[in-house]
Amino acid sequence: MDETDRLIINSLQGNFPICDRPYLEVAQQLGISEDELLSRLQTMLDNRTLTRFGPMYDIQKLGGSFSLCAIRVPAERFEEVTEIVNAFPEVAHNYERDHEFNMWYVLATESPEQITHTNQAIEARTGLKVYNMPKIQEFFVGLHFQA
């Protein structure tokens, strides 16, 4: 990653134009050619410096239900419970965290009822209490990472 890559990352985390030649418009602002911008973006996607390039959708505003849920899993049952939880297709992410509440997963379903049903099924299969923590208010989502 060189200075030009940093410039691209730092200036392109939003506001990509919607016009016929958006890469040209951005390249001119950055003082590089359209071809160079395209090839650098491709390289940074290929080497995973960027995870993606394009529109970031607020999937909740498009419909569907989401919730962050936590379980206190006894250490000796962690692997078994991970297998049970991960097997549910409604589980989109699952993280182990360094805490007594050590399993944190995100459910993504088509309806709020399915959140409840999935958590009831997970409780039944694991015998553990699920703490369902859907967001009540969103204050901020985003972040400008400085390269």
Binding site: L12, Q13, G14, T49, T51, D58, K61, G142
Partner: peptide
């Protein structure tokens, strides 16, 4: 359509998503 979805907040933004571990 993209402009409309941006206006309605269905698109949060259009741009690059850095891999923060790589940074």
């Amino acid at each position: 359509r993209l402009r409309n979805m941006l206006d309605k907040g269905q698109i949060r933004r259009i741009g690059a998503v850095p891999n923060h571990y790589k940074l």
